[in-house]
Design a protein around this nucleic acid. Structure first.
Lengths: 206, 206
DNA sequence: TAGATTGTTAATCGATTAACAATC
DNA sequence: TAGATTGTTAATCGATTAACAATC
């Protein structure tokens, strides 16, 4: 009954998964809630409690088999598969996103890049040919695209989002510095590094 | 007594500030906790409570003067000034960060870019000349750099961080997919867009 | 004055932590 | 067996929300 699990728990699972991937890269095969907690700066109780929402993945006295726990978390998060993603916006930011390899490396493949500027349409951006925004709705619909990244100026972000939602997108990673209105069944996450910087300057002395 | 204010409150102030900047761009001069709440998907009570930690910025019956509240929040967050930032890592990700204009536009000026690869040192990256990592400590110290962005591979991130901390940096924006250990007086924020995507796939149906 | 909205208190809600029996 | 660690319950802690007097 996934709907009962608090979103804050879900938000920590990718962090656990990332730490497990690192541990197994380092050649380790077994870990414990204490070790994970130490690495992540989280209490071991919280890790055990979070994991217990999805089943008993560990063994008393022993801990967790890393390979097994990784697979379990991957499947809970639905990242054992590859996802196709649409990127809207081929400006400064959109270009950087399109060229960044970190997404594909971890299973999120940008397959379409859209822009509204006629002079950009048809150009190459890395391996992609920039598509006209007028094709957005049709492309998303025809390919059953579920995930999109929005990297357009703030003033266009809501309109683009509305089109995405109307065409069937259910998850949006929004780089525009604005809060998006979406229906309850659609998920939005926000990336704005400046917000993180502003949160830290509060604590700076000088 | 800033230290008593919960960090979760601090983390929302930049969001409020961003919304206020948008409102004033749109030509509005006054707003209310209800309007802000509607825009941000936050309850009006929470906004009033958060703001009340720092003083009475509004007027009963009227709401908040946007220009005034903006100034107050800027000064609470210490972003009424310009900050100088060091960027470590001039790979794919570091290059994208260096070229991105969104930081300088909002008062965070990248002034130094470091990389460990000898073949990159001395090259231009946008307006910057890439500096050797061996100069990191001295440069940070000499210029009293308080803020740094880390965009190196995960395996080097902790070592770079240790150097930064030892040289006086107090705020780190970390793009490496790893948890950093720092002393209590140093603040770290994390950027990993893939984590956000993985959090949303959990909810996707198909 | 009547209507609107703040700042704040108290009540509610939810998340984290401590503790421990079960068991490997 | 002795030591370690899980999964889970109950206690604690903290954050959000509801409500309202004060007042513009």
């Amino acid at each position: 009954m996934p709907s009962e699990i608090p979103d804050i728990v879900i938000s920590r699972l990718p962090v656990y998964l990332r730490a497990l991937e690192r541990l197994s890269q380092e050649g380790q095969e077994v870990t414990s809630s204490h070790e994970l907690g130490r690495r992540l700066g989280i209490s071991s109780a919280q890790i055990r409690k979070d994991l217990s929402h999805f089943g008993g993945f560990g063994k008393q006295g022993t801990g967790y088999k890393i390979a097994f726990l990784k697979d379990q978390l991957r499947s809970v998060l639905k990242v054992e598969r590859e996802w196709h993603v649409a990127l809207i916006g081929a400006g400064d930011l959109g270009s950087a996103i399109a060229r960044y390899r970190g997404f594909a490396d971890r299973g999120f493949h940008i397959r379409w890049v859209f822009d509204s500027a006629p002079e950009k349409v048809g150009r190459k951006l890395g391996p992609y040919t920039i598509l006209p925004i007028s094709n957005l709705s049709e492309t998303v619909r025809a390919n059953h695209v579920k995930i999109a990244m929005v990297a357009v100026p703030a003033e266009y972000a809501q309109a683009v989002t509305d089109t995405l939602v109307a065409s069937g997108v259910e998850a949006i990673l929004n780089y525009a510095p604005i809060n998006l209105k979406v229906p309850d069944n659609v998920h939005v996450q926000y990336i704005d590094p400046v917000l993180h910087l502003q949160r830290m300057t509060y604590y700076l002395s000088e």
